[in-house]
C-alpha cells in the first residue's frame, strides 16, 4: 500500500471546500469521480488533482493553496499530510487521526478538535484551537503543535489536550480555559488568559504571573516525563527542561485554579 498523493493540476481562483477528504472512500475510483462544486459548476475530483498511490487512509496533498478550506475537518482515523498553505478550518472538529501541514493556515485551524494530533510547521490565523462556530466548546482533547506564530483569539475555552506553540501567540489568547496544557515558546499577546478557570501554562512571559503566588521550590517529576513524551511526539527535543521551571498558582481570584510554569 502506498499513500495517495494528490497534486493540484491547475491554478485555483475560487474557494474549494475539501471537507469530503475526511470521508472514507471505498476505493480509488470513487475518489476520482467524486463530484465537487468549483465556482458554480460541477467537476470531478480527478479534473483538479492527479492521483497516485492506493492507501486511502494516508493522503498526501502536494501544492496546496490557501483557497482550500476544511481540510481534515471532522477527520476520523486517517492521516493527511499537506505541503503548501491551506484555507479556513484546517482540522476543525477532528476526532482522531493525524494532520500534518508544511505551510500556513487561515483562521479556525484546529478549532474544537476532539482528539487526534495536528502539526502545523508554519503560522496559523485567528481563532486557532478556539471555539468553532455555533459551539461554546473549544479544544476538547487532542495534541496540537504549531511551529510558527498563532493569531488572535486563540485557544478559547479549551477543555483538555495539549497545545505547543514555538512562535508567538496573538492577543486575547487562552480566554476562559477550563483545563488542558499550553506551552508557548515565543511572546504572548495582550489580555492573556482572562477568565481562566483551570489548566497549565508554560511561558517565559512574566506579565501573567503578577496576580499569582509563587509555589515552594520542588522537584516536578511529572514535567520531565511530559517533556520526554512530547519530544517523542514532535520528533525532536522540546525547548524546556525541568531545571528552569518556577511554578505559580493560587491566583488572587478564587475561581482561578490555573497554574503557570515560568521558564527562563
Amino acid at each position: 500500500m502506498k499513500p495517495i498523493i494528490l497534486q493540484l493540476k491547475k491554478k485555483l481562483k475560487y474557494r474549494l471546500d475539501m471537507s469530503f477528504l475526511s470521508t472514507q472512500f471505498k476505493n480509488i475510483s470513487s475518489l476520482q469521480s467524486y463530484k465537487i462544486l468549483y465556482g458554480n459548476k460541477q467537476f470531478k475530483f480527478k479534473d483538479f488533482f492527479s492521483i497516485k498511490g492506493n492507501d486511502l487512509n494516508n493522503i498526501i496533498i502536494k501544492s496546496s493553496v490557501n483557497l482550500m478550506d476544511n481540510i481534515g475537518r471532522e477527520l476520523r482515523g486517517m492521516n493527511i499530510k499537506v505541503y503548501g498553505d491551506v484555507g479556513y478550518s484546517f482540522g476543525e472538529k477532528m476526532y482522531s487521526g493525524k494532520l500534518e501541514l508544511h505551510g500556513n493556515t487561515l483562521d479556525y485551524a484546529a478549532a474544537g478538535i476532539k482528539g487526534g494530533s495536528l502539526f502545523v510547521y508554519g503560522n496559523t490565523g485567528e481563532y486557532t484551537a478556539g471555539k468553532p462556530n455555533s459551539s461554546n466548546e473549544g479544544v476538547v482533547d487532542g495534541f496540537i503543535y504549531i511551529k510558527g506564530n498563532v493569531g488572535n483569539n486563540s485557544i478559547e475555552r479549551m477543555r483538555r489536550g495539549n497545545v505547543i506553540i514555538e512562535g508567538n501567540l496573538g492577543d486575547d489568547a487562552c480566554h476562559e480555559m477550563l483545563s488542558g496544557t499550553v506551552i508557548i515558546k515565543g511572546r504572548v499577546g495582550k489580555s492573556f488568559a482572562e477568565g481562566i478557570k483551570r489548566g497549565t501554562i508554560f511561558t517565559k512571559d512574566k506579565k501573567i504571573i503578577q496576580k499569582y503566588n509563587k509555589s515552594n521550590n520542588a522537584e516536578f517529576n511529572f514535567t520531565g516525563f511530559m517533556f520526554k513524551e512530547i519530544s517523542k511526539i514532535i520528533s525532536k527535543n522540546i525547548f524546556l527542561t525541568n531545571k528552569t521551571l518556577t511554578r505559580y498558582c493560587g491566583h488572587q481570584d478564587d475561581d482561578n485554579l490555573s497554574e503557570i510554569f515560568l521558564y527562563k
Partner: peptide
C-alpha cells in the same frame, strides 16, 4: 447552493474577503 442544498460557511462565503481576494467574477 451546492449539490441541491445550501451550505453555510461564515469564513469561506464572507463577501468582503472573497472580493478582496478576487475569488469572485
Amino acid at each position: 447552493h451546492i449539490e441541491e442544498t445550501f451550505k453555510h460557511d461564515r469564513n469561506a462565503f464572507n463577501s468582503e474577503i472573497l472580493l478582496a481576494n478576487k475569488n469572485i467574477d
